[in-house]
């Protein structure tokens, strides 16, 4: 951890900073945030066209998994329920698709960002597309 005085556009900021895993923590005037390393960010979204890894939005415990491999889901379908710090989070499908893989089981402890469910575009299989209804929203 370091205290650093940094001048940006003529203004000097007193910054507390520390290196974390895959990024840095910065606190300025009591406002802190995590800034991921640029390298890590660039590997993310590009390949998301066909497969979507649905990742853990927080570190916590998987309370229940509500889908199975091969299942067709619509936008908003409940995939899993996570719990952390007494708060329940309902992980839902961001779009319609087919569940290609389930990487977690009820009772698992998962870290933030860990892939939990992989969705595949259902368009590749007409029979499944047929049974999938787009959410009205």
């Amino acid at each position: 951890m370091s205290w650093i005085a940094i001048e940006v556009d003529g203004k000097v900021h007193r910054v507390a900073a520390a290196r974390g895993r895959d990024g840095i923590w910065i606190s300025i005037g009591g406002r802190s945030a995590f800034y991921p390393d640029p390298r890590r960010q660039s590997t993310g979204p590009g390949s998301a066209a066909i497969h979507d890894e649905i990742r853990a939005p927080m570190t916590g415990k998987v309370v229940a998994v509500h889908v199975q491999v091969g299942e067709a889901v619509t936008e908003g379908t409940l995939l899993a329920i996570l719990e952390a710090m007494k708060m329940e989070y309902r992980l839902v499908a961001p779009r319609a698709g087919l569940v290609e893989a389930v990487h977690c089981r009820a009772g698992d402890l998962v870290d933030l960002g860990l892939p939990l469910v992989r969705l595949m575009e259902s368009a590749s299989d007409p029979s499944i597309t047929g049974s999938t209804t787009e959410s009205p929203q």
């Binding site: 370091s2 650093i4 940094i6 940006v8 556009d9 900073a17 840095i24 910065i26 300025i28 800034y35």
Partner: peptide, 12 residues
């Protein structure tokens, strides 16, 4: 500001 974040990254 991104410039600040970059400067901190470099300093660390």
């Amino acid at each position: 500001p991104p410039a600040l974040v970059e400067a901190v990254r470099k300093a660390l």
